[in-house]
Computed example of a mutant assay.
Amino acid sequence: MTTNDQLEPMPGDWQRALAIVAHPDDLEYGCASAVAVWTDAGREVTYVIVSSGEAGIDTLEPAESGPLREREERASAAVVGVREVEFLGHQDGVIEYGVALRRDLAAAIRRHRPELLITLNPEDTWGGTYWNTPDHRAVGRAVLDAAGDAGNRWIFPDTDAEPWNGVRWVAVAGSGAPTHAVDVTDGLERGVRSLMEHRAYIEALTGEDPEKYARDLIEGFAREEARRFGGRPAVTFRLFSR
């Protein structure tokens, strides 16, 4: 970050990105607006969701909730131009950081061959105020590690796809210490509508009208970050180069 606290623009010289997160809805709490901007520019973005979010709705049994949340995520991704959404089937709420998770993520990276990897905050807290969930911490950390694993032919040599050492950056959304940002002026409305596709989840989470809930959150986050990005509504990332 520069000394005046202003964020740098995200790199633009890439064509393929892979977003890997723990749950359906993780990407919709802000990041989807940036995805809409990228797909508008002709870039390819694929989603890999580690669980189906089946433990996320208290009033629905996991066997019913998981398929519902997968449907909501596919509809949500389509709003921002994402055609491919893959679910890895790890158990929601108890995703474990370790070799098994790293292997699955390295295999996904090898299959999709991204230049840019995107994940969610792996830190202990959200801005030092709210404790982060175990799933977010495990998946975010494993994504950072799997970026290197995927390129090493001697690590996980039995995956179907060949090693891929083409990951150039890992972008962490929701970080308390962002370094870069995307101007989401043209993607903000679709970011709101993308979150609104998670209607069953939102209705279980809050008594607010789903559109008001989504609009207040997504527009609020983007406008709050504008002060660090030339007054433009922004989605922020902590960017790690490789």
Rank of each mutant, 00 (worst) to 15 (best):
Q6A: 13
A17I: 11
D13C: 07
V143M: 05
N132G: 01
G12T: 15
T125N: 11
R69E: 08
D145G: 02
G53H: 10
F229Q: 02
D183Q: 04
A200G: 04
R228G: 03
M196K: 06
R223M: 13
R113S: 01
L68D: 07
V167H: 05
E84P: 01
A41G: 13
G187N: 05
V80N: 06
T159I: 09
R168F: 01
E73K: 04
S241A: 15
E54C: 07
N121R: 06
R153Q: 07
V50L: 02
K212N: 08
S241M: 00
R102F: 00
M10N: 00
I95T: 10
A222Y: 03
A142K: 08
E208Y: 02
E197D: 06
P62G: 02
E162T: 09
V139A: 07
F221W: 12
V48Y: 01
R16L: 04
E70R: 14
T133P: 01
A107I: 06
Y29Q: 08
H198E: 07
G231K: 06
G81Y: 01
H198W: 02
E64S: 12
P163G: 08
R16E: 04
G191L: 05
E197I: 03
Q91L: 07
G42N: 14
A177P: 01
T133N: 14
P233D: 13
T179S: 14
Y47D: 09
G93Y: 09
L60W: 12
E225Y: 00
A100Y: 11
P9V: 11
F87Y: 12
G176S: 15
G191S: 14
V170P: 00
G93E: 05
V80E: 06
P233A: 15
F229E: 07
V50M: 02
E208A: 13
